[in-house]
Design a protein around this nucleic acid. Structure first.
Lengths: 227, 227
DNA sequence: CAGGTTGAAATTTGATCATATTGTGGCCGC
DNA sequence: GCGGCCACAATATGATCAAATTTCAACCTG
């Protein structure tokens, strides 16, 4: 699996030149994006200083960043936890993701070289395997890699940032849905997206992206209401 | 001026129960939103510890949050500064603001009571006065208050968060534009927004909001290209 | 000989940690 | 069940270490 670099594992490696607070941020970000933290789970500073082996200052900074990202919430009484999504939250995110990510696909279409599309196709083949194998963790990472790779070519830092922010919000809940329903029912409109990209059809890529988003998010909404 | 509370002034008051890092964040946020910091200006930790009279830990946390907000940028060599916008950045923000804030206006329409609309009208009258007087600082604060008040009634925390994030990005540059061209040429489609709100016409409110956004942002884009 | 360039030292700034302080929640006794 | 105590976790500071930029001077070049 050379398609994905495991950023979490780098947090404790000694040879890394990045500052500790950045490493802690990336480690926590991965844990949130790929569902290693459960919605509602409390996050304590001291727990992280112990488990990550760094001082509390870097941990504090990473937590503040993630709160600002919406990936963690500050529960008033200086308690921090992983957010639980309401159906209203999901409905808002459907709207925002439709608007933003369809535009990202639209803009990426013209910028992708054939080799880039081949790379996306390779990711998607691995994705199919994770779905067949019921590999939830692999599915989450590859699905994220697919969209991130695509959106990176849109050359729109601000829109991409807004999109990433939304992914951080629904990451933990998506993991719960996958764990409950398995990977079989998960959406994969990636084939249609790839076809559109090959044809240089920006509008078709945008439409397929919207369908991919709607399927995934509505699955989440159903799963959360049936709790 | 009881319409706006000066959050910056609360940072050093002793009777405040909020933690220091929160106060520092709000103080810096105000300075950025209302243009007390110039685009490109470096922001140093030690400078803030001195000027705000708090330790460096709260300052560091506030800066991390603002970096995550996009209100400050980390310039690689552990230097932090106020971002300079490119025309591409502005174009992205026009797209995002159109999509998000028009929806906020649409959703707020049904939730506003007559008294709320009266309040908006009051803010707008003050706004007109600041435009006439050439009061840039007052214009920025009241313009922000108008939109924030409106969007607060949309009951959409995630979309509102995305919108606030964008305001933080263009705040400093908006100040520069106002300072250069004065307040006379500034847009104010608020009358049309208010009329639409009174009629309960969500679509009209959305259209007027888009026009307000486009006028303001395109003014910024022109000002930045003519530099 | 003058101007520019490069090198190293010094100062400024950032990063991390250990520690003191404060506030919160839980628990025990009444 | 309620109110006061205790323990724990978070907040905030100052000290210490590391890195980077800036400054200054000597040397090389034209």
């Amino acid at each position: 699996m050379e398609l994905i670099e495991n950023r979490a594992s780098a947090a404790t490696s000694t040879g890394d030149k990045r500052p500790a607070h950045e490493q802690v941020y990336q480690a926590l970000r991965s844990q949130i994006l790929f569902g290693e933290l459960v919605p509602g789970q409390p996050v304590t500073i001291q727990g992280l200083t112990d488990s990550l082996g760094v001082g509390m200052t870097p941990v504090r900074e990473a937590i503040r960043r993630l709160i600002s990202d919406g990936a963690l919430i500050f529960q008033g009484n200086r308690r921090v936890s992983v957010p639980l999504l309401s159906t209203g939250d999901i409905e808002e995110m459907i709207f925002a993701r439709r608007a933003i990510e369809s535009e990202l696909s639209r803009r990426a279409t013209g910028n992708l070289q054939a080799a880039d599309i081949d790379h996306l196709e390779r990711i998607d083949r691995h994705l199919d395997r994770t779905i067949a194998d019921g590999d939830v963790s692999g599915y989450l990472k590859l699905n994220q890699a697919f969209h991130e790779t695509l959106y990176a070519h849109a050359n729109t830092p601000i829109l991409s940032d807004l999109a990433e922010r939304l992914w951080l919000r629904f990451g933990p809940s998506l993991r719960v849905v996958c764990g409950r329903f398995g990977t079989q029912s998960l959406p994969d409109r990636h084939k249609e997206i790839i076809t559109a990209l090959r044809n240089g059809d920006a509008e078709q890529a945008a439409r397929a992206t919207i369908q991919d988003i709607e399927q995934g998010m509505e699955l989440m909404a159903e799963a959360l209401t049936s709790t």
